[in-house]
């Protein structure tokens, strides 16, 4: 059943292109500043976290680790994609109910399109990370630490793929549930805020091993731990690959996709009656 649904989605991928273009056009049509916002937002937040954790708390990564500001951005930018995807997919069906009611495309598209549109915005925000990498490579002193680009940068490809699978899977659960249950969005927001701190973005897993050794075994089931690690290994030759986290990230992401497809199919008739 799920495979035939997937085949149906694949056969309609052209519509996906239309939907994503529409999303991006709506986002960037209103003001020429549109693209600048995509850069300013992560830049501002990155600087805030940098001053709080990097400067005030004096969090230096040491010579064996990635420079903190790069470490931070390499975690925060993918996090923003994840965060925006989940928040937006939760509203995906309800916000577009007029369209959902009047067109007969595979309804999963409404979720997938959000993840892709947010993914493109995320890719457009990557110059922020590139900027800091270039600054440091050219000798700017932005804190102690290592920065040595290496061939493991290729791990970004599976990182993107896994995060896409994860976001689609979770989004397929969020969208129908929020369409049926009014205040589910509030819980999602709280969980997301907690998850931000349960993901190694402003701290590293080494710090967890150091202070709370037992927590690693739990945290490793957060697929973002592995995904963040994939982002960072290519930026410094001294960062080791966290093999277990990569494996659990893969398992958990695809498990979410399977679960999401199942939930979506179960709830779809009820959602259509409701919206």
């Amino acid at each position: 059943m799920e495979t035939t649904r997937l085949a149906g989605i694949w056969s309609q991928r052209k519509v996906l292109d239309t939907l994503v273009r529409r999303d991006l056009r709506v986002r960037y049509a209103r003001s020429w500043l549109g693209y600048v916002w995509t850069l300013i937002d992560p830049l501002a937040m990155g600087l805030v976290y940098f001053f709080v954790f990097g400067v005030l708390f004096g969090r230096t990564t040491g010579s064996d680790d990635l420079v903190f500001i790069v470490y931070l951005l390499a975690g925060m930018l993918p996090w923003n994609w994840f965060n925006n995807s989940i928040n937006e997919t939760a509203r995906a069906l309800y916000a577009e109910r007029l369209l959902v009611r009047s067109t007969n495309i595979a309804r999963e598209m409404w979720v997938i399109r959000v993840v892709i549109a947010k993914g493109i915005e995320f890719l457009l925000s990557l110059p922020v990370l590139v900027l800091f990498v270039v600054l440091i490579l050219f000798g700017a002193d932005l804190g102690s630490g290592n920065l040595s680009l290496n061939e493991r940068l290729i791990a970004i490809v599976p990182a993107l793929l896994l995060q896409f699978v994860l976001c689609v899977g979770m989004g397929l659960v969020m969208a129908p549930v929020t369409a049926l249950v009014d205040d589910f969005v509030r819980i999602v927001r709280i969980v997301l805020r907690m998850l931000f701190y349960f993901t190694p973005i402003v701290y590293s897993m080494e710090l967890v091993d150091d202070k709370l050794p037992w927590a690693r075994d739990l945290m490793v089931w957060n697929p973002l731990v592995g995904i963040m690690d994939m982002w960072r290994v290519g930026l410094s030759g001294k960062v080791g690959v966290d093999g277990w986290a990569w494996i659990t990230a893969t398992i958990v992401s695809f498990a979410w996709l399977a679960f999401g497809l199942w939930v979506f199919r179960k709830l779809e008739p009820a959602v259509l009656k409701e919206i």
Binding site: R22, R25, V26, A29, R30, L98, L99, R101, S102, T103, N104
Partner: peptide
């Protein structure tokens, strides 16, 4: 071709 909710798909901003 469904002539149902004719303007449902249009977006005011575009």
């Amino acid at each position: 071709a469904p002539l149902i909710e004719l303007t449902g798909g249009f977006i005011g901003e575009l």
